[in-house]
């Protein structure tokens, strides 16, 4: 009989499951955005900005979900500072939930900074305070902030699996693979989403003659294909579609109006996350096909 059969369930139920999903997507999006930020070209900027936006919103939602899930939500800061000895830091390098709390805080900080930088780049910030912060995150500093956000992103994606392994629960603690699985899953999910996000995201720059729709996402989706062939195939169809032309015919004319429309769509990271979520569910549901299922690469 396994020695893990005698432990008790920690009641990490749907809030935490939702967090695993949102945090994983945010972490993976952040890593991929950072990779494209560092190693991609100027035509990839929309993908980078979208990635950071998804990461920022995901980080904030993750923090909210985890806080609400606590038995005493108002004591969430007890994980960061010693409650009887404020402001002494509370940190245990050997406890995933302890270093994870700090990880989420810092991931939130850097991904929001990176997202603000991207929004300032697009000229979408009007609030003077936000504009000051976003405007400061540019050039080399933006790359650095994005890189740190990417590293924290992959940390967020993976540590949750490690956290589950560092228990005495059946299955979770019976092997060391959950962290690796969570990290891999987090990167492949947003990679699949990248495929969808790009055709729309690049509408804004297409008329400038640099539209390589779906190209960066093709690159990252290779990751998905390698890990999960079924997912990759489906995603590959999306890529093919992206290559041939925009899915939405209204977005095709390179008029200022279309550009503005494209940017307005880009403006909603929450919406993009929702689209992505639906897409992930559809892809993973295994039965349903992509929207234009007949479109074969």
């Amino acid at each position: 009989m396994s020695d893990t059969f005698f432990s008790g369930a920690p009641h990490w139920t749907w809030l935490i499951i939702l967090y695993f999903f949102v945090g994983g997507i945010a972490g993976g999006a952040s890593l991929l955005a950072a990779v494209v930020d560092w190693f991609g070209g100027p035509e990839d900027r929309p993908v980078v900005r979208t990635g950071y936006n998804v990461a920022a919103v995901g980080a904030l939602v993750s923090g909210a979900l985890l806080t609400v899930d606590l038995g005493r939500p108002l004591r969430f800061w007890h994980m960061l500072f010693q409650s009887a000895n404020f402001p002494a830091i509370m940190f245990k390098g050997w406890s995933p939930i302890s270093f994870g709390a700090w990880g989420i805080l810092l991931f939130g900080l850097f991904s929001v900074l990176a997202a603000l930088g991207g929004m300032a780049e697009e000229g979408r910030l009007h609030n003077p305070a936000l504009l000051a912060v976003g405007g400061a995150v540019r050039g080399g500093l933006a790359k650095l902030v994005g890189g740190v956000a990417g590293l924290f992103g992959v940390f967020i994606a993976g540590y949750t699996g490690v956290l589950l392994s560092v228990t005495n629960r059946p299955i979770w603690a019976d092997g060391p693979w959950l962290g690796a699985l969570f990290a891999a899953s987090a990167v492949s999910g947003p990679a699949a989403r990248g495929e969808r996000a790009v055709p729309r995201a690049t509408v804004g720059v297409r008329h400038q003659g640099t539209g390589t729709r779906a190209a960066p996402a093709r690159a990252v989706s290779r990751v998905a294909r390698i890990r999960e062939p079924g997912l990759g195939r489906r995603v590959g169809r999306g890529a093919a579609r992206g290559r041939r032309g925009p899915r939405d015919p209204r977005a095709a004319p390179a008029t200022p109006a279309a550009t503005a429309g494209g940017q307005r769509r880009q403006a909603g990271p929450a919406r993009r996350l929702l689209v992505a979520t639906r897409h992930d569910i559809r892809v993973r549901g295994n039965r349903a096909l992509p929207r234009n299922g007949g479109d074969v690469a």
Binding site: S7, G8, H11, G71, R75, L163
Partner: peptide, 10 residues
């Protein structure tokens, strides 16, 4: 001090 995160339970 406890904030009910439930890590100790698992």
């Amino acid at each position: 001090v406890c904030n009910g995160c439930r890590a100790c339970i698992a």
